[in-house]
């Protein structure tokens, strides 16, 4: 047994190619970003060691702060929407939907499989006002709510909200399926017993279900968090970060700084910041798992 499973040659052959590729393309660049962040300019062009100066600039940079605020708002609302509505849907499926369970689940999961850019293009047309009314505006117009007809993604006040709605629409079904699976794992005798004891729907949820759903809630929150920290594709596809900076995220700002303005050193600081936000944010969410 040992001579087969301890075969050094085979282990090297199995692990080494993937290890090299992974190191060169994933881990090395991450460390490299740290190193870059200590320089100003871009390699080959005014490339000078500047120590922690980039980090100091970062906190005075108004564009960065704006991007951070946009990104944090997006994270908060999308997380709440995706996980909250996902849970609500799962509860509906589990307790009130008797027939058509599979077909409803399949239909609600549908948007999850769509490419982000396609969804962005689709919603750009839904929200459109010029040259023709898009789906939303024409429906509003038709049901007599024409005072609400507006350039949803063309004005700063509604652009971020429109983007958030789109991303909740996309992923709601995903979390619904995850919560539904977890609800099915809860033995029905527990629920029956609580019912016989006269448990109301609300206390059933707060006292019986939510403690049992805690682990899956935590994983869902972490998953949604790490997805939303990266905010890029959907915003790019729907609004290109605009109007102005209304939907410009950290990643988009990083992208502009390093590729459009060629400030590679400064862009790397933002890249490092995104990484740290991702790591510490998920740590904090995981902390809630251990409490109580």
């Amino acid at each position: 047994m040992k001579h087969v499973l301890g075969n050094k040659k085979a282990i090297t052959l199995f692990v080494l190619p993937a290890l090299i590729l992974y190191t060169a393309i994933v881990m090395l660049p991450v460390i490299w970003s740290l190193y870059y962040s200590l320089y100003s300019g871009s390699p080959g062009l005014k490339w000078e060691f500047s120590g922690l100066k980039n980090y100091q600039t970062l906190f005075k940079d108004k564009n960065f702060r704006d991007a951070l605020v946009v990104n944090l708002k997006y994270i908060a609302f999308v997380m709440m929407g995706q996980v909250g509505l996902g849970l609500a849907l799962a509860l509906l499926f589990r307790f009130w939907l008797v027939r058509f369970k599979n077909i409803v689940r399949t239909l609600v999961f549908f948007p999850v499989v769509l490419p982000t850019v396609a969804v962005g293009q689709l919603f750009a047309k839904i929200y459109e006002i010029q040259p023709n009314y898009g789906l939303l505006n024409s429906l509003l117009d038709n049901i007599g709510l024409s005072q609400f007809v507006q350039p949803w993604i063309g004005q700063a006040s509604t652009a971020l909200a429109s983007l958030i709605v789109m991303d909740i629409w996309v992923a709601m079904g995903f979390y619904a399926v995850i919560f539904y699976g977890a609800l099915l794992d809860i033995p029905s005798d527990i629920i029956e017993a609580a019912r016989i004891d006269g448990c109301s729907a609300w206390s059933m949820f707060t006292r019986v279900l939510s403690p049992l759903l805690r682990p899956v809630t935590i994983t869902s929150l972490v998953f949604s968090f790490t997805g939303t920290v990266k905010m890029f594709e959907s915003a790019l596809a729907l609004t290109k970060g605009g109007p102005g900076n209304a939907t410009k995220s950290l990643s988009m700002y990083m992208y502009n700084v390093s590729f459009s303005y060629s400030k590679v050193g400064y862009g790397s600081v933002i890249a490092v910041f995104i990484f740290l936000l991702c790591v510490f944010g998920s740590r904090i969410i995981h902390k809630f798992d251990k409490q109580i």
Binding site: I25, M27, P29, F232, A271
Partner: peptide, 21 residues
Amino acid sequence: RYFALGIMVPVATALIPLFQI
């Protein structure tokens, strides 16, 4: 553990150096 680290890495963080490489 080393391979598991990568699950957390946002693509954006590796993008600039990768472009240079």
